[in-house]
Design a protein around this nucleic acid. Structure first.
Length: 814
DNA sequence: AAAGGGTTATTATAGACAGCATGTC
DNA sequence: CTATAATAACCCTTT
């Protein structure tokens, strides 16, 4: 079937597709057309990755738009949202407009309403429904990418409930669900009242096999000799083999999947010996530039190690990387500059990063709940293997699992190569999921009675799958009790069917997209302040701020100038020394409060951390909001300590501790730091709104919350808040300016330009921009010489990039 | 006695959405 | 109950 023969698409689209090289539709695409995608029919397409799923979605959306409708494309990851948007924007030529909406990249609501196609994450769609985005009921087509993720216990229920809501609001809604090949695609189709298109067809052949001994044994019976001598590394030989096998004049790149961040890093370092010697001079030059760029992203060991590996054409990829790191690695890998990436599963489900050869090195992963090493899901391994084969570059893709012995080889074939992926199972009937969604469903008017609620939930995948009718109702009742006790819903038990209504605060919680349990915890904590804030336990706070006896490890919060390490302990007590009445609430207390909320991921407690944070906990008990759980009797004590560790990380960040020191101290990567700060910022903003909305919380507390949040946002101490608010001034520059005597925005407008320039290390253009942004009337620095004394004070700590731009920015511009 | 080399014990373990108000270097 | 790699701790040998 030729694209131009399709009816129902905007004029010219079919021809444009052909011009792109789509001469014929792929079989699954053709089957989808036969099933009616361009005629508004609902469809579940369960086909392998990279077999043209996106085009199926595009056909549905474009034809829907052509009929005067509006389409929504739901993605599981923010990074995918921008990728899809860029892809769809080629239709703007045909007057089809595209908009995106995710947590970190959001367009104006009205502007969105005017777009024909909107790309958003499932959580964002959920949030838009809760907040009553007006265009939601104009939708005529919704595409759900990677629907098999409804199986995810954390995020799956959101997708499930969101789809149910969209379909409820828009009865005739065309629903197109794109799924990996799973065991029960028919059940999903059944749930969505959709046609099913199921296929294993791939445009690029995929050879899956297991390497053992001296050869890869493929599923089709072929063998490929890749001898591995004793003491040689299996992975290295396979990567080398792919690079040495030229197709279309180029060696093939590899993607190595491992089971931990550390393994990813060490694998990348080892593979440097394979990739490095095969680089051309030109590639080396470009890689060196890329490495510099990577070093510029963050001043941490992780960043440095990544740059070192990249210089040799190898890289690692995991969630500890900053998003800029990830983007740089992904792009360079796609450009074939980086020859091999060692990755954790981040890359299996993320943006499109295909390779000639995929090597699944580790097929088991540590799982604490499981109590040891747990084999990966078949679906997960299939997703990894699906990354093999670059369209347009490789004539075939190879996915190789590694075995050390014949038994393992056998097992891998049985378990993964021949096996069908697990069936998808709804995870909706669990308290945490229902807590959130029951409240939202009631608050946004989808149900006004218990019966109404249950009948709404009947439209979910869970309901179509379960044999246990009572389970959902039972969990729902438990959750309703919880919501009532915490004052989020009111129940009217008089009528025939129990009436339900969200309270004012319940509405707020739903709109803020908070887990009700987080909201309850935050409110409890803030009320604690109101109770005993005035009792004047001030001295304890001051005492807690002083350096602990063994200052080396305990002197965490101490502000240290760059390069001076722990020497500056004295600075710490300065702010505590004046006679202000003790603050009713400290940043640490607030950081701890939001960190112990179910909306924050816990930091792992390493050995030794337990003792250390137990000590910190008692030292600073007075600052913590709420009662410390009993160390010996309460299982929540562990969580309390993990939250305290997170809180300390946040406190360090807000005390201008360098990123690399934080990374080292807490055993995390730059990506984790940014993630934690970001989450805490979000929760503190929500806390601020809650505190204002609810009675019994002191106005002063609200101010403290805001300040704690702003200090996280800029990563600075209190005295720099004003300066750091100026555009182009981050935590580092603000501190340098402050040290040079420029303490505020107003100072910036009045100060001696020579001093400003000196503090900014003579960076003229930067200084001019900053002066301009601060509102100075005459920002020009022509003929101004930097004041060397200001410069000297500010240069005390040399930062690695040497140009004074060591701004640790938290901007999240994927 | 100090350094070097090999063996054994110990330690630690993936990922990532949301609000809001505007702009990284 | 399962793995594996890096590192720390330890023990023995050699110089």
């Amino acid at each position: 079937m030729e694209p131009s023969s399709l009816s129902g698409l905007p004029a010219g689209v079919g021809e444009a597709l052909e011009a792109e090289g789509v001469a014929e539709l792929y079989p699954p695409q053709e089957a989808s057309v036969d099933a009616g995608v361009v005629d508004g029919e609902s469809l579940v397409a369960a086909v392998p990755t990279a077999s043209g799923k996106t085009l199926i979605a595009e056909l549905a959306m474009l034809s829907s738009v052509e009929r005067g409708g509006k389409a929504l494309y739901i993605v599981p990851l923010r990074a995918l949202a921008s990728e899809k948007k860029a892809e769809f924007e080629r239709w703007e030529e045909f007057d089809v407009t595209v908009g995106v909406s995710t947590g970190n990249y959001d367009s104006d609501g009205e502007w969105l309403a005017s777009r024909d196609i909107i790309v958003a994450t499932s959580e964002k769609v959920d949030s838009l429904i809760r907040n009553g985005a007006p265009w939601i009921d104009d939708l005529t087509c919704v595409v759900s990418d990677e629907v098999h993720l409804v199986d995810d216990s954390h995020r799956g229920p959101t997708l499930e409930v969101t789809l149910a809501k969209l379909r409820k609001v828009n009865p005739g809604l065309q629903t197109v669900a794109l799924s990996a090949t799973v065991g029960n695609a028919d059940v999903i189709a059944d749930w969505l009242d959709a046609e099913l298109v199921e296929s294993d067809w791939r445009p690029i052949e995929l050879h899956t096999g297991v390497h053992f001994g001296s050869a890869i044994n493929f599923d089709d019976g072929r063998q490929r000799e890749v001898p591995v001598e004793r003491g040689e590394d299996q992975t290295a030989k396979l990567v080398g083999d792919a690079l040495d096998t030229e197709e279309d004049g180029q060696g093939g790149s590899s993607l190595v999947f491992v089971n931990s961040r550390r393994n990813a890093e060490s694998s990348a370092r080892k593979l440097t010996d394979v990739t490095g010697p095969r680089l051309t001079g030109d590639e080396r030059d470009r890689l060196r530039e890329l490495a510099e760029e990577i070093r510029g992203v963050s001043d941490t060991d992780t960043s440095e190690d990544l740059a070192d590996a990249v210089e040799e054409g190898s890289a690692f990829h995991h969630a500890g990387l900053a998003s800029e790191h990830r983007g740089l690695v992904e792009d360079a890998f796609r450009d074939r500059l980086i020859k091999c990436v060692s990755a954790t599963p981040t890359l299996a489900a993320g943006v499109n990063t295909p390779a000639r050869r995929v090597i699944v090195r580790d097929w088991r992963r540590y799982d604490g709940e499981f109590g040891g090493m747990k084999p990966l899901d078949v679906l997960e391994v299939h997703q990894m293997c699906g990354r093999a084969g670059r369209p347009g570059l490789d004539p075939y893709g190879e996915a190789v699992l590694l075995a050390n012995d014949a038994d393992t080889q056998e097992e891998l074939f049985e378990r993964y190569v021949w096996a069908e992926a697990e069936p998808v199972r709804s995870k909706l009937a669990a308290e945490p999921a229902l807590r959130t969604h029951v409240l939202a469903t009631v608050a946004s008017g989808f149900a006004a009675t218990r019966d109404g609620l249950l009948s709404f939930l009947d439209n979910t995948l869970y309901a179509t799958q379960t044999d246990d009718e009572g389970r959902l109702a039972a969990v729902t009742d438990t959750v309703l009790d919880y919501l009532e006790v915490n004052g989020f819903v009111e129940r009217d038990r008089d009528g025939g069917s129990e009436g339900l209504a969200a309270t004012g605060i319940g509405h707020t919680v739903s709109r803020l997209y908070l887990d009700p349990m987080s909201a309850a915890e935050i409110l409890d904590g803030l009320r604690t302040v109101a109770d005993d804030g005035a009792t004047g336990e001030g001295d304890e706070f001051v005492a807690a701020d002083e350096p602990a006896p063994d200052a080396d490890d305990a002197g965490f919060t101490t502000y240290t100038r760059a390069g001076e390490d722990n020497a500056a302990d004295a600075t710490a007590s300065e702010s505590a020394a004046d006679d202000d009445p003790a603050p009713a609430v400290t940043p640490l207390g607030l950081y701890h409060l939001v960190s112990r909320t179910p909306d924050t991921y816990e930091l792992y407690l390493k050995s030794g951390d337990r003792e250390q944070y137990t000590e910190v906990c008692y030292e600073r008990e007075a600052e913590l909001l709420g009662d410390v759980p009993s160390e010996y009797e309460d299982v929540r004590f562990e969580d309390w300590l993990a939250a305290l560790k997170t809180a300390r990380l946040l406190e360090d960040w807000a005390n201008e501790v360098d990123e690399d020191r934080i990374a080292e101290r807490y055993g995390v990567g730059p990506g984790d730091i940014r993630g934690k700060v970001d989450t805490a910022e979000w929760l503190l903003r929500a806390a601020e709104t809650l505190a204002r909305d609810v009675e019994g919380i002191d106005g002063d507390t609200v101010v403290q919350v805001r300040e704690a949040r702003k200090r996280l946002e800029y990563g600075v101490r209190e005295e720099l808040l004003d300066l750091a608010g100026v555009r182009n001034v981050g935590r580092k520059r603000a501190r340098r300016l402050y040290e040079a005597g420029i303490e505020s925005r107003a100072d910036l407008r009045e100060a001696d330009k020579a001093v400003v320039l000196g503090a900014l290390r003579g960076r003229e253009r930067t200084a001019e921009r900053i002066l301009e942004n601060a509102g100075r009337e005459d920002p020009s620095l022509d003929g101004v010489d930097p004041d060397s004394s200001a410069s000297a004070a500010a240069t005390a700590g040399a930062d690695a990039d040497g140009d004074g731009d060591g701004q640790a920015s938290l901007g999240d511009f994927g």
